[in-house]
């Protein structure tokens, strides 16, 4: 895949998320070394951890109005409990459909207006 990622510090071209893990065991996203929210360890005690990009939908909502006119509406925001532990909130692939809580979700990379690829979540395809 040759396309440029919109936010390469947050995810990979395979749809994995670039998180971190503290020596105390706390898993977080995105990666940072400022300090652990649970125990306060910092620096080298916080190590990068690649998160799988799979999770379970906790909630979603279709947004009809947004202050930033550059962001076209409607769009859908989902709250996903990642299999690795953290909860992330971001755009879903489908811009105008709420999805049932509990649905298994997986990351997907979609083309943006400027030609880069950005990360979204979508329901995991049925096997």
């Amino acid at each position: 895949m040759d396309a440029v990622l919109l936010k390469p510090t947050l995810y990979t071209s395979s749809g994995a998320l670039l998180g971190g893990r503290c020596a105390c065991g706390h898993v977080f996203f995105p990666m940072q070394t400022y300090g652990c929210e649970v125990c306060g360890r910092h620096g080298a005690d916080l190590q990068p951890m690649t998160l799988s990009g799979r999770g379970t939908l906790l909630s979603s909502t279709v947004v009809h109005i947004h202050a930033d006119k550059a962001r076209a509406t409607p769009f859908t925001i989902g709250k996903v409990l990642l299999a690795d532990g953290p909860v992330v909130r971001t755009l879903l692939v489908d811009p105008d459909r709420e999805i049932a809580p509990g649905t298994p979700m997986v990351t997907a990379l979609v083309s943006t207006d400027d030609g880069t690829l950005d990360l979204r979540f979508a329901p995991e395809p049925s096997p």
């Binding site: 936010k7 909630s59 962001r71």
Partner: peptide, 25 residues
């Protein structure tokens, strides 16, 4: 200094709309 996936797309009312849907469900 930390980047985010799409926090700029999540206004306060969107945060609480998510909670509304969770509560209703």
């Amino acid at each position: 200094g930390l980047d985010h996936l799409a926090e700029d797309a999540i206004a306060q009312f969107t945060h609480f709309s998510l909670l509304t849907n969770e509560y209703a469900h």
